[in-house]
Simulated assay, not measured.
Amino acid sequence: MTILNQSTYEPLTEDTAVKLALQLSLFDTDAVLKCREIGDGNLNLVFHIKDEINQESIIIKQALPYAKVVGESWPLTLQRNKIEANALKVAANFVPELVPEVYFTDEELAITVMEDLSHLEIARKGLIENHQYPLLSKHIGTYMAKTLFHSSDYALDPKVKKEKVKEFINPELCKITEDLVFTDPFFDHETNNFEEDLLANVHDLWNRTELKLEVAKLKKKFLTNTETLLHGDLHTGSIFASSDETKVIDPEFAFYGPIGFDIGQFIANLLLNAISIQSQKREFLYNHVSTTWSVFTDQFSSLWETEGVEIYTKVPGYLEFTLQEILEDTIGFAGCELIRRTIGLAHVADLDGIVDHGQRIQAKKNALLLGQTLIMNRKNIVSIDDLLQEVRSVIQND
């Protein structure tokens, strides 16, 4: 099989992934390569290839033409691989230390060859195991401030920015978010997945017309606000971390949308972990939430003042207005994420991994209640301290 010269897409195997690595001359000529397919996500194949002699390694990621979680009945474009690779390259312009290095891409095969991060661990898994990652929130706050600012109209010539919007049009993966985050969990839809014990709580949620109205407003913003280039799926499962290193991965959902979406997704997943553990252990997660926002706002504000090209960035009060709008969006999007990760199609191990049935159900009830509270109260929460006070009031009695 000729890998690089083939004209049609075909999923790699462990054998052909090794052949590709050799063709790309990514290892020494004396390399003894061992390959494992390690993908545990819903959309891709992921191959870990290691030279057993020199202890060097790479990752080859290949998009599948369907969602693994459902099968071939849910087809997906392979274009997302190109979007992911380009998003990583954009991020590398501003935060190279916070994303994996990309070595090679091929649009026909829908592959990206990149730095191996297996010396780190997925942040979600580590947080579940009570690893605290002291620099996680500082790094992610920095990642978001720099990537979100530099891709926006605040930093780009309007014509350049509109060309970027066109480059990152991502309709199929955006449709997944539109359905699974903003729509299906709020209606009696077949994709929803939850325990019988939650049925009464879920029916109450579905019957809240005022809640649906607020979610509709958030969905509209997601659909129509091309504010900046988002990661699009920035949860703790899309981050590798250690005590001193952080790397953001998997931006295949990247597109131009509202700044608060990435921030809301990340904060919501910190809160999902907080909900899943004993109350006396939650404070470090609340500190991560606070630090994420403070680092983001400090660095975003500094960039605004020193590198803003939009003339109105010089008008007093416009920065404060923008940050307040971002916070409101962040809180609302976080609320949607809490709900969809509890009763929607794609759950999180933080909640589902709670062994005791009663504790798991209570945690999920807390997540549903907190999600609704954040959506409904987002306009009245004017600081990150207010947000954490709201969080504590909802989930302290568990």
Rank of each mutant, 00 (worst) to 15 (best):
L229Q: 07
L229T: 01
L229C: 03
L229R: 12
L230M: 10
L230E: 08
L230A: 03
L230P: 05
L230G: 10
H231Y: 08
H231N: 06
H231C: 02
G232C: 00
G232L: 11
G232K: 05
G232Y: 08
G232Q: 08
G232I: 07
D233Q: 00
D233T: 03
D233K: 09
L234W: 00
L234Y: 02
L234I: 00
H235R: 06
H235G: 04
H235Q: 11
H235K: 09
H235M: 02
H235I: 09
H235V: 04
H235Y: 11
T236H: 01
T236I: 01
T236N: 12
T236K: 10
T236G: 03
G237Y: 09
G237P: 01
G237V: 03
G237W: 10
G237Q: 13
S238H: 01
S238A: 11
S238N: 04
I239W: 04
I239Q: 06
F240R: 02
F240V: 01
F240A: 07
F240G: 04
F240C: 00
F240N: 04
A241F: 11
A241L: 13
S242E: 10
S242V: 07
S242I: 00
S242M: 09
S242Y: 09
S243Q: 15
S243H: 15
S243Y: 14
S243D: 15
S243G: 15
D244P: 07
D244F: 14
D244Q: 14
D244L: 13
E245C: 04
E245M: 11
E245A: 13
E245I: 12
E245F: 11
T246G: 09
T246A: 06
T246Q: 07
K247S: 12
K247D: 12
K247W: 05
K247L: 04
V248K: 10
V248L: 13
V248S: 12
V248G: 06
V248F: 13
I249F: 13
I249C: 03
I249W: 01
I249P: 02
D250R: 00
D250A: 08
D250H: 00
D250V: 06
D250C: 06
P251G: 08
P251L: 04
P251V: 04
E252P: 09
E252N: 00
E252A: 10
F253G: 02
F253Y: 05
F253L: 10
F253W: 06
F253R: 00
F253Q: 00
A254G: 11
A254D: 02
A254Y: 05
A254E: 04
A254W: 06
A254F: 12
F255D: 12
F255M: 15
F255R: 14
Y256A: 09
Y256H: 14
G257W: 01
G257N: 00
G257P: 04
G257D: 02
G257Y: 02
P258T: 14
P258N: 15
P258D: 09
P258S: 15
P258E: 14
I259V: 15
I259T: 15
I259Y: 15
I259K: 15
I259L: 15
G260D: 01
G260H: 13
G260K: 11
G260R: 13
G260S: 10
F261G: 09
F261H: 00
F261M: 01
D262S: 03
D262G: 05
D262K: 00
D262R: 01
D262P: 03
